[in-house]
Simulated assay, not measured.
Amino acid sequence: MSPLITNHTINARQFMILVTLYGIGDSILYIPEMLATDSGQDAWIASGIGFIDSFLFAYLFGKLGSRFAGATFIQYSEILLGKWLGKLISVIFILFIFIDTILMLYEIGDFLLTQFIPRTPIQAIIIIFLCITMQGTRVGVGPLVRASEIFIPWATILLIILGVALLPQINVDRLFPIFEHGLSTLWKSNAQQIGFMSEFAILLMIFANIDRPHQGTKAFILGALLSNLVLFVLTLLAILVLGAELTTKQIYPGFILATRIDVGHFFTRLEAMLATIWFITIFVKTTICFYATTVGVTQLLQLDDHRSLILPLGVLMVPCTLLFVPNNTYYEAVISPFWTYYAFINGVLLPLLLLLIAIFWTRRQRQNL
Rank of each mutant, 00 (worst) to 15 (best):
S54N: 06
S77I: 00
L81M: 09
I102S: 03
S90H: 07
E107C: 00
Y76G: 01
F68C: 02
S77E: 01
L81Y: 02
L64G: 07
G70M: 03
I108K: 04
L105S: 05
M104C: 06
F55D: 04
F96Q: 00
Y59W: 15
I108V: 10
V91Q: 04
I49Y: 13
F98T: 14
I52G: 13
T72Q: 09
M104L: 13
S66F: 02
W44R: 12
M104A: 04
T101N: 14
F57E: 06
A71L: 13
G50E: 10
I49T: 04
G65E: 05
S77A: 10
A58M: 06
A69Q: 08
A46W: 06
L80G: 00
F98I: 13
F73G: 06
I94N: 15
F73P: 04
I99M: 09
G70Q: 00
K83G: 01
E78N: 05
I102Q: 03
G50C: 08
G65Y: 07
F98N: 09
K63P: 01
Q75D: 09
L64P: 00
F51C: 14
A58I: 13
L56K: 05
L103E: 09
D42G: 04
G70C: 03
S54V: 15
S54F: 10
K83P: 08
L81P: 12
E107Y: 02
K87Q: 08
